[in-house]
Design a binder for these strands. Structure first.
Lengths: 209, 209, 209, 209
DNA sequence: CATGAATGAGAGTTCATTCAT
DNA sequence: TATGAATGAACTCTCATTCAT
């Protein structure tokens, strides 16, 4: 959460403390690349520092520990992505459009930041602590889905008898599955173009009607 | 697998083989528990050995390295689970029944072996090497799905216009998402009871018809 | 020295205890090959045992420890070689002939047993303990040389003003140097043919007369 | 050597460089003493580090492995000794003087650095890799000898019918034998005083003329 | 006598973290 | 602030040796 604070502060007083922010961001970026390439455990502080163009010790002026780097990376990315997803969803005029915006922007953000995609696929599940830290965000995502589903039901667009608790898990699960496949294929195709077909599957299912 | 084979063949007392792989299995079980609890990297050989009731060095009589333990654990579980899933699927009389059997048995096996569930959730994505090793199994799973979908289309039960490549990813993705949630909740509810509602979602989607 | 005892006993009561001797010798031979190929430290008991066709534990029925194998190997070879050298020297009618026999048989024995040659080149210098154990043999070799030199001086064949203490070191040093070169060249030429030219060098030196 | 180079070049204070390689040299010295006393295999990094007054991990800032320490020790010493021998030889006015200088300085250097003497006696023959690494130096030594012998033949000081290939081996072999004896006697006498008598033996041989 | 599975002490090595400069 | 040399705890893995069978 501290990373978020400093993040928000940096936005607030841009100009001041610009140098500190620069190094902080450099290190965070560098860590993203190194974690994505080697995984958290095989990555070393030296790799991160040298890719960021700073000394090893400097890393500890901005981060408490190696784990803290990962935590801050994930917090930062999670918040940043969530904001964009949120903004995208708001553009939707009805539940279905909102759902499409959600999936599209989710995939869009991950496609635009493959390091983040890789780290979310592999590291986030690895660390219970992280799961705890990002629980808030995760909860917000689920609440967003809840709202969309509820709205859809009110609109009469979605079925009334949905097992909402399950739907809320099943949608992001499927998205992550599709993203995971994309990552495994080294990002060799356009991920966002999967979004609408996927939403169509959510909506109409696979059964002949 | 060769190590396993030669191990099983070592003694000429086929038929009983009661203690043929006592130690091997003890260590593998122990490793499953320790990996599940601490994750691969934080787990130590000493923990695994002592939980298995053997000396550290003994581990290396049965496994060639720490990674090898994880590989063999995953290979073993993957094969074993896949066989059961396969058998369950064959009981289905038609595509829909087969799909239900697939999801049910998938969840059933993971529910019966929570350590495995945790390890599959976290470690498998972490190791590219492992992903490579279990690619065959993964491919078989996807082929199974392909067959079911194709059969369903022939039967006229599933839509003809499905984006099969996407459906094949979206189904296991959603299952894993549901399993992941169950794991996060410490297995506090019946996972298998999620299977049919989930299949219903696959089949009919969430849209009001 | 125990190895010597058992060696002499084996000769004494051949027929009886033949089995024990067989295994003992097999292990010793195997150890010679393995030590020569890998060096004492990189060689393992398992390698030695398996090459000898016995179980690891069996090695310890015949030898006290890994070091003991090396000690016994060296004692055995040293004694055996020294006997042959001694016998060869006795055939010489005068000091010069004796010296030639000494060098020739020394080289001959090492050429016939390359494993021994390698082990003497590398291991003997490595272990102070071994140097201590074979000091007696070494001393006998030097005494043999002393006797030959003295006899040569009495015969009037060798110079009276020799620094005998130095000559005694310089002769085996040169021989070992030549053997070492031969070993390095993988025994690719006839070592014994170096003997007479080498003795000629001892005798007449390199200075124009 | 590259590690050395980059190390020396690291700081821009050429000229003084007083503590540029303080640690490096301390560790190398310490390793020399420990290897000499215990042999490479029985020596431990902890012994070397603690004798050098550094932490175990520090050793790995300067050397990439235990073997690397030995390699660098031997490379360093070999080069350093060879330079001195070379310089000494150049002082000789004729072949015989050059030969005397060669043997004298060889013994002098080894006498001044007993650890090096011990390590060269025991370790160098133990490691094929090392023998390969120092082959160049060894070759230079032999070439030096070739030149001296050839010069002596041209001068008319050495016999024309010498088996030069043999002479080249026999001289360093004898020197090493003499050094080995000196080492075994714990350096209890003046080694250099053996040089001239040894050269006399080379020159005139042991036969009555 | 023979076996070989089991042991566990002990080694080399890594690397996150610190701190004097 | 920034550095990067130094630290040392902690890890994996090896293998000589033992002992129940």
């Amino acid at each position: 959460m501290m990373s978020l604070c400093s993040f928000f502060l940096r936005k607030g007083d841009a100009g001041l403390q610009k140098n500190k922010s620069e190094k902080y961001n450099k290190i965070l970026d560098s860590a993203g690349a190194v974690f994505a390439q080697f995984g958290f455990y095989k990555a070393t502080i030296s790799q991160i520092a040298s890719r960021a163009g700073v000394a090893d010790g400097t890393v500890y002026l901005y981060f408490k520990s190696k784990e803290d780097i990962l935590y801050q990376f994930i917090s930062f990315k999670t918040n940043s992505v969530f904001k964009k997803i949120n903004a995208a969803v708001e553009k939707g005029r009805n539940a279905e459009e909102k759902l499409r915006q959600l999936i599209r922007s989710h995939m869009d953000e991950f496609q635009k930041d493959k390091n983040m995609a890789i780290i979310f696929q592999s590291e986030v599940r690895y660390f219970r602590d992280i799961q705890f830290q990002i629980k808030d965000i995760s909860k917000m995502y689920l609440e967003l889905l809840s709202d969309i589903i509820e709205q859809g039901q009110i609109e009469g667009a979605f079925r009334q008898d949905l097992f909402v608790g399950l739907v809320k898990r099943f949608i992001p699960g499927a998205v992550e599955g599709v993203i995971g496949t994309w990552v495994s294929a080294d990002g060799g195709y356009d991920l966002v173009s999967m979004a609408d077909p996927l939403v169509d599957l959510y909506l109409t299912g696979i059964r002949e009607q």
